[in-house]
Design a protein around this nucleic acid. Structure first.
Length: 256
DNA sequence: TGGAATGTTCGGCT
DNA sequence: AAGCCGAACATTCC
């Protein structure tokens, strides 16, 4: 569920509910939902809610709560809670529930944002993006999924971006010249901005903080469309495995 | 019944 | 060193 556009949408829909709020306490209903130690945050003021890569960040007086959504995590304003509710962040007024069926997600605490991740795909300049690509020999699909290269892309958007840029997922990064690197950078921005405008992709159970599903799945060109017609050339969308993830692309439009 | 699913991380191999 | 692979984590769905 949660890649950059979904995390962005959750942060944007959660933020208006948090104005002037303070944390009362965080209740963990599943132990594994807590990542590391979290100090007593009672009374801490909420300053801002935003996205950090694929994570949703709640900035408090003295640090930041970082919510990793994993594969199936969701954050909902005032619930509803259910059998998959793993944690509840109780505020002075209202609460945020963290639901996560598969339990790959977690909530952690840090004084500062981690420095280990790559730049944000919507903030990195074309020049920096190109120079980072040039230094790597990995295949494009693997690189786009690597959060140390760029923070925020996942399997859906990596495939959609490579299709939009007409680049083969197995192309070694360092073989991209200025033209193809520029195409990739522009495709990345366009796909992500459109996906955010559509409220993200709901392919199984993603909803925003107010419970609304996204609409971008209707505009997927290749993801989940193996065997169907390529919307660009009429060929057939293929599926291979790269970096242990299903990879959808059009072998006719996306040449090696 | 087996396999795949929006993700991350670790260990081992080349 | 960098890159790649398999496995593991937990649960649902087809």
């Amino acid at each position: 569920m949660p890649e950059l556009p979904e995390a962005e949408t959750i942060a944007r829909t959660l933020a208006p509910h948090l104005d002037g709020r303070r944390v009362r306490l965080i209740r963990f209903l599943a132990l594994r939902a807590r990542r590391g130690e979290i100090p007593d945050l009672s009374g801490a003021g909420l300053h801002r809610c935003r996205r950090f890569g694929k994570q949703v960040a709640l900035e408090l007086d003295c640090g930041v709560l970082l919510v990793k959504l994993g594969m199936t995590g969701s954050l909902r304003w005032r619930g509803p809670t259910g059998p998959y509710t793993r944690a509840v962040i109780e505020l002075d007024e209202g609460w945020i529930s963290f639901d996560d069926i598969r339990q790959f997600g977690s909530i952690g605490w840090a004084r500062h944002y981690p420095q280990s991740l790559g730049p944000d795909p919507l903030e990195v300049s074309e020049e920096e993006f190109r120079s980072r690509l040039k230094r790597r020999s990995a295949r494009l699909k693997a690189l786009l999924l690597d959060q140390r290269f760029l923070r925020g892309l996942g399997n859906i958007y990596a495939d959609e971006i490579l299709f939009a840029a007409a680049l083969h997922p197995l192309t070694p990064a360092r073989r991209l010249g200025a033209e193809r690197a520029g195409r990739l950078w522009r495709a990345m921005r366009e796909v992500l901005e459109r996906a955010i405008a559509a409220g993200g992709s709901s392919i199984s159970n993603y909803v925003d903080a107010d419970g609304r599903p996204g609409r971008f799945q209707r505009f997927h060109q290749v993801y989940g469309r193996a065997g169907q017609r390529c919307p660009r050339c009429g060929g057939t969308i293929g599926r291979i495995v790269v970096a242990q993830r299903g990879t959808h692309f059009c072998a006719r439009c996306q040449r090696r």
